[in-house]
Design a protein around this nucleic acid. Structure first.
Length: 216
DNA sequence: CTCCCGATAT
DNA sequence: ATATCAGGAG
């Protein structure tokens, strides 16, 4: 585990590398953001962004998503993958938005996670990006980067990773750090071929040192 | 824990 | 061919 000074160094380095890191899912309101994040499970942002422009043009309100047969919505999002469960969740989500929330995405995380297809990670993204509430959404990138850099323990669950990061990072830096860690993981500390040899954090990364020794 | 699933990189 | 992708439900 890293010291306080080392963690400060990690945060500052990521800020230098990705000063403008932000949500890359295209959206223009909280409802579109929620749909986009739901669709992004086990899919790349790039692919989601290819589908959502047409989707958001066709479906603008919860009522719109409920106005077509399930099979039609499935075909509209088929390219993203996991399309059957996602289409079903979208219609269930829209039904409860109309029935229980006045057709509007709720701002509280405890309410968001009650929506179909919305778990803790998606809820954290929505509260943070759409409503400006400090949060750290632990996705595959944040988990991988946190474990490689020993910001948390290797065996930690995603919930434990989130708690650890919230404890070690100042609250007013949660959202920016969260996005910088995603960029760092997506473009630099990648799952398959991480750029360890050109990494400014290699000296405090056990995983990177091991990897450099093996691969050269 | 398993299952859902197509697109893309390696 | 296989791993991975802004996970969540059962």
């Amino acid at each position: 585990m890293l010291t306080k000074v080392q963690i400060r160094h990690v945060l500052d380095t990521m800020t230098e590398m990705f000063p403008d890191a932000e949500c890359e899912l295209t959206h223009s309101n909280p409802f579109e953001l929620t749909i986009a994040v739901l669709l992004s499970a086990q899919a790349t942002d790039a692919l989601v962004n290819k589908v959502t422009p047409g989707l958001f043009e066709k479906y603008k309100t919860p009522e719109d998503y409920l106005s077509v047969p399930l099979e039609e919505l499935e075909q509209d999002i088929r390219r993203i993958g996991l399309f059957r469960s996602k289409a079903k969740n979208i219609q269930k989500l829209c039904r409860s938005l109309i029935d229980d929330y006045g057709g509007v995405i709720p701002q509280e995380r405890d309410e968001l996670v009650k929506l179909a297809g919305v778990g803790r990670k998606t809820a954290n993204v929505v509260t943070s990006v759409a409503f400006g509430e400090p949060a750290i959404a632990v996705d595959t990138h944040v988990e991988r980067v946190s474990k490689r850099l020993a910001l948390c323990r290797w065996k930690d669950s995603v919930l434990e990773v989130e708690k650890t990061l919230m404890r070690k990072i100042p609250r007013d830096e949660w959202s920016d750090t969260h996005h910088r860690m995603i960029f760092f993981g997506r473009y630099h500390c990648k799952a398959q071929s991480p750029r360890c040899t050109e990494c400014p954090l290699l000296d405090l990364c056990r995983e990177g040192k091991k990897r450099v020794k093996v691969t050269g």
